[in-house]
Design a protein around this nucleic acid. Structure first.
Lengths: 343, 343
DNA sequence: ATTAAAAATTTACGCGCGTCAAGAATATCG
DNA sequence: CGATATTCTTGACGCGCGTAAATTTTTAAT
């Protein structure tokens, strides 16, 4: 630190007593040099805080140490949570995650992928919009870079996909609700953009039929990402007009449920499974705030940790062997029933 | 598009009929070339989707078009919301925002600044931890790059600071609460990391004294970012033991309030200002979920938009004239009282 | 048309590092 | 100890672009 500043790898190689090409090799992969020389370099590193110029590094390098992470909307706590875990996993692996949010705008997803192109990422983790994604753009990107999808699936796109088994999770919830009270109706967005919503719809119908019950679907008008507001307004209308044929409502996701809980409270309808309660409301996702709703929300916890870790791990395995997967991997993790007070 | 791919600026200059140095100039600043040549370049751009290599671009360039945006914790909806706005404002201005979260870990803030150094950012927008920030590291960074702080202030650090006037906003809330019912006590974290918390504490005391009332402070044990949980546990304990000397509680921030609302619900205490209500609870920040709590939370809305825009604008003004501000700018925006049902 | 100013071109160099080939040094093993 | 396999050094080239100086072309103004 006391020495005059090191300007480039040439100078750093000089003070560390190692040739520049070897130093270059070290920075690419510290394990690729002999332990004795690694020690010399690392000793020098502690004395002369030198760090290679990332721009010069990446210029000639085919693949950088950058990992793109693209989520549809960071303002949604679900994505900030799972994005957070993915980010940390990348850092642990010695990569530089670049977190990009599409701010709820599908077109921006393509923009983000386009921006990533110029950063020559070693790989990309994408939680796509799904139906609203530009499938051609994503598939084109998939051809040029190692791409792993998570949260939302897109057929024949990406080298792998990791998400929650909505059929298992919804069935788990339907089973619980049927066993413990009236069979649930289903509350969802009318035109959801996320493919999970469609799967959950289908899963609900199938599960209800398997239980010998008649499915009842209620759909909320509205576009965009304001799920709580939509749940509150549309759910409130349905509650006020007594439209539900049952006193148990399964919401397609927690954010809708949070809105509906708010509406129920305003209508003085006591939500829960205890005596004196008017209706039960359940959600899906174990949203970070679902523990603090009134009453606390019964929901399905997605295995964030497993999804994030497996997606990252799979990507890194591809990077190691430096080839595409022989066959598209697809793994669904089970949801876990979280019983709280609302249902 | 039909032509063979352009490999570099040399080839692109050839097909556009302009010399490479001029093309280079164009990409630095499209307005720096004659309109007629700009048209030629842009015409060529539409035919041969060429984009300059960012790494080669930034290698020799002193300042890049990168803007660093560092927030303490993206998992907090407050920061994901304000980070979102800052990001979009940067994109509008033709810069590339790089959003970094410190994941609630103060040491990671310094790491993030260190990472940013190697990206040679044109400027950085930082929402610091405050007391827990490594002040020396931040100030050192301030000397090397244009730095603007927002949300949390640090004395003599950064070229400018933009945030909310906690004294104004807390006074507004205290005034309202006193006028409409019992004077509030104050509920906060015992050892808050955020400087805003200290200001709010002080603002509460001063405001109460100005109103001729005796301030009462209640502090919650607990560390970390689990404010809702802390609010629920500690707030619940205080409510259950009837420790509050008043039936109006002003929480230092919405997340604590959300936790306390949850505890109150569990205790069957009706919150609100109407008849039959046991207590009033108010918050601060207009957290995205405060509209959907039960009851909806009365709070102070921070002017996210203004804070984000002014911070970004101030930074860009510095970049334009390419010099530090003659004097450290500091501007506080007023909070807005949002009256809902909880108080 | 003349002239000065502005902009574009030509030529050339350098940035910091990746990477390759050939040879020298070192390590590993029987 | 010698033979072979690793690893390192030396020297050199190139990546794609920024940028500077000198020259030529274009534009604007008289």
């Amino acid at each position: 630190m006391v020495q005059p500043k090191i300007r480039n790898m040439e100078e750093f190689a000089a003070v560390s007593g190692i040739s520049r090409p070897t130093v270059s090799k070290y920075f690419n992969d510290p394990d690729s040099v002999r332990p004795s020389t690694r020690q010399k370099i690392e000793a020098a590193l502690e004395q002369h805080d030198y760090r290679p110029n990332v721009f010069a590094m990446n210029q000639n390098r085919r693949k950088t140490k950058n990992i793109g992470v693209v989520v549809p909307n960071l303002a949604d706590p679900f994505f900030s949570e799972i994005g957070r875990r993915v980010e940390l996993a990348c850092i642990d692996a010695g990569y530089s995650p670049i977190l990009l949010s599409s701010h709820g705008i599908p077109e921006m997803e393509s923009d983000n992928l386009e921006s990533l192109r110029s950063l020559k990422p070693a790989g990309v983790l994408l939680a796509p919009f799904g139906r609203l994604s530009d499938k051609d753009a994503v598939q084109a990107f998939d051809r040029d870079f190692p791409l792993v999808l998570f949260d939302a699936n897109m057929s024949d796109t990406g080298q792998a996909y990791f998400g929650t088994d909505n059929f298992q999770s919804i069935d788990l919830m339907v089973e619980y609700l049927c066993r413990s009270g009236e069979p649930p109706c289903f509350f969802e967005m009318k035109s959801p953009s996320n493919p999970n919503a469609n799967k959950r719809h289908q899963a609900y119908v199938e599960s209800m039929e398997r239980h010998g019950q008649t499915p009842h679907i209620f759909q909320a008008e509205g576009e965009g990402w304001n799920f709580e507001e939509i749940g509150k307004v549309e759910g409130g209308r349905l509650l006020a007009s007594n439209a539900f044929k049952t006193r148990t409502v399964l919401c397609s996701n927690d954010r809708l449920a949070i809105g509906m809980l708010s509406a129920a409270y305003a209508l003085d309808l006591r939500v829960g499974h205890g005596p004196g309660c008017h209706l039960r409301i359940a959600g899906h996702d174990d949203h970070p705030f679902s523990r603090f709703t009134c009453p606390a929300l019964t929901t399905i916890a997605q295995d964030y940790e497993a999804i994030a870790n497996r997606a990252v791990r799979t990507l890194f395995e591809m990077l190691q062997v430096d080839e595409r997967l022989p066959t598209r991997a697809e793994m669904l993790f089970e949801g876990r029933l979280v019983m709280r007070d609302s249902a």
